[in-house]
Design a protein around this nucleic acid. Structure first.
Length: 486
RNA sequence: GGCGGCGUACCCAAGUGGCUAAGGGAGAGGUCUGCAAAACCUUUAUGCAGCGGUUCGAAUCCGCUCGCCGCCUCCA
């Protein structure tokens, strides 16, 4: 497998610290508000990575944290007039609600900053002892000058950064780039006792403390959004390697942003959509598919049009699954041999999964290409079904193809439902003003008209349904319905 | 200003040295159908922002130019 490593700027062969085992830490969220679609991207990308490692036979330990104490949480609490920890609890719950809907699995360990205060204090002390940190007026700062490699991840030169001005002036810092490991608490703020008085942890130190505790001093993969690269991950390296004297992380992995009108989606610009807002209008699988249909490092432009295209793609998939179901219900002609078309398709199928899907995923988790291969197989499968296969072997072949598709879908956590479930969900999302019973009633009426060759009435009924978002498909042995997409 | 990235058809998007430049959406024509829908077939980039260069050979490497974006402050 190859993974792009931000640290080296290259795609590298993945070689874990210990064989067949991969330890991953992904930066989660600060729980002070609802998650937006950018959080969803990050969560889904790492969810797929961990699933794929698992599929490849690795023993995976996946850690994803919650930052549950921070300035933004305190501010939010003041604004809402509730305790800070109630804010953290509330938005942690909401995080799970959103992520569950998107099919993002739980991490193996989901540590919280406030549950690791003891570990954090111990590391800060160690950093002071080793001369990498200093106390000033009840706070503790990391001394960037003490760590010569500072800037190696974000490829920055400390002198240039200082010249770059936009750094807040703080008299207590020895170097403007120094950052807080421990912050003295102000009146009325939450605090924990420490050797330096009452205070709370700085932002970066929690990830050092929690990753070390749950994954060890050195581990394989550390990930997060590209905006965490600096200063967060740079600071984590400085803290962790200074404290342990060992390399911190082997592969740094960063996902790209979601943009709106080409601009990064962000809270401060106000150009963001929360996950729940999007899920009011689109099925969760559509969102997941959309986010995986571009490579994880590239930016994704977010728009309704693109979401609709994703919806159409998924619909194409489930339409094919319906065809398979229809086909399997039919009796075979009892013949053993594979048809001519079956032989061709069989050859394609045997090379599909190993040859294509895995190859795509092995290459830096190229889900976009992997999905492309899925649709190649879908087309070939449809073509085979068009050839009217009928033997026992043909039928087995179709079922084998369906299994392959399901296996690929499982890794991406897509295509896991039945067509009926898909359409039921679409009916909700699109607020179709008809029940299934009503639809069946209309189909029955139309069927009667068709038997009497009353094409006008039949077409009127079909048009009525279509206006309400239901499309009909006449087949030899009945009429199927589906929800119009796009 | 420093660092990094991007620019592939009407739209989205893979491909980063060598077969006919994946896949999805949209459009056009066709097969099928009572008509549709779905599916399939054909079709829409002799060319991958532009200009030079390296090479037997480049969308893919190098240089320059243009355009867009990100990070350098909290941020997935």
């Amino acid at each position: 497998m190859k993974i792009y490593n931000t640290l080296t700027g290259k795609k590298e062969e993945f070689i874990p610290f210990s064989k067949n085992e991969v330890r991953i830490y992904a930066c989660g969220v600060t729980v002070y508000d609802y998650c937006h679609i950018g959080h969803a991207r990050s969560a889904i990308v790492f969810d797929v990575m961990r699933k794929y490692f698992h599929y490849k036979g690795f023993h995976v330990t996946y850690v994803r944290n919650f930052t549950d104490i921070d300035d933004k949480i305190i501010n939010r609490a003041q604004k809402e007039g509730i305790p800070w920890d109630a804010v953290a609890r509330k938005y942690t719950d909401e995080y799970y609600t959103d992520m569950d809907r998107l099919g993002v699995g739980r991490a193996d360990v989901e540590p919280k900053a406030t549950e690791h205060i003891g570990e954090i204090i111990a590391i800060v002390q160690k950093l002071i002892e080793k001369g990498f940190a200093y106390e000033a007026d009840g706070s503790v700062y990391y001394s960037v000058d003490a760590f010569p490699a500072y800037g190696k991840l974000s490829k920055r030169d400390t002198d240039e950064m200082i010249a770059g001005a936009r750094i807040e002036v703080d008299e207590r810092k020895r170097n403007p780039l120094d950052f807080a490991l421990w912050k003295k608490s102000k009146e009325g703020e939450p605090f924990w006792e420490s050797p330096w008085g009452e205070g709370r942890p700085g932002w970066h130190i929690e990830c050092t403390a929690m990753s070390m505790k749950h994954l060890g001093e050195s581990f394989d993969i550390h990930g997060g959004g590209a905006d965490l690269l600096f200063p967060h991950h740079e600071n984590e390296i400085a803290q962790s390697e200074a404290a342990s004297g060992k390399p911190f992380v082997k592969y740094w992995v960063h996902n790209g942003f979601i943009t709106i009108d080409k601009e990064k989606m962000s809270k401060s610009l106000g150009n963001f959509f929360t996950i729940r807002e999007v899920l009011d209008r689109f099925d969760p699988e559509v969102v997941r598919f959309f986010l995986l249909s571009t490579h994880y490092r590239s930016p994704i432009e977010f728009s309704d049009l693109l979401l609709q295209e994703a919806e159409a793609s998924i619909d194409k998939y489930y339409t094919t699954i319906m065809r398979i179901q229809d086909f399997v219900e039919k009796k075979t002609d009892g013949k053993e041999a594979l048809s001519k078309a079956g032989e061709l398709f069989s050859a394609l199928l045997s090379s599909f999964f190993i040859g294509n899907f895995q190859e795509a995923m092995d290459d830096d988790f190229n889900t976009a290409l992997a999905i492309g291969h899925i649709f190649e197989l879908v087309r070939e499968l449809n073509r085979f079904l068009d050839s009217k296969p009928s033997s026992l072997k043909d039928r087995q072949l179709v079922l084998a193809a369906q299994e392959r598709l399901a296996e690929a879908g499982e890794i991406l956590h897509l295509f896991g439902r039945t067509p009926l479930e898909w359409y039921a969900s679409l009916m909700k999302v699109k607020s179709i003003g008809l029940s299934e019973t009503e639809i069946h009633q209309k189909i029955k009426e139309r069927q009667d008209a068709r038997l009497g060759k009353d094409w006008q009435l039949a077409d009127t009924i079909r048009r009525e349904l279509e206006e309400k978002g239901i499309i009909l498909e006449d087949k030899k042995d009945g009429t199927a319905w589906k929800v119009r997409v796009g």
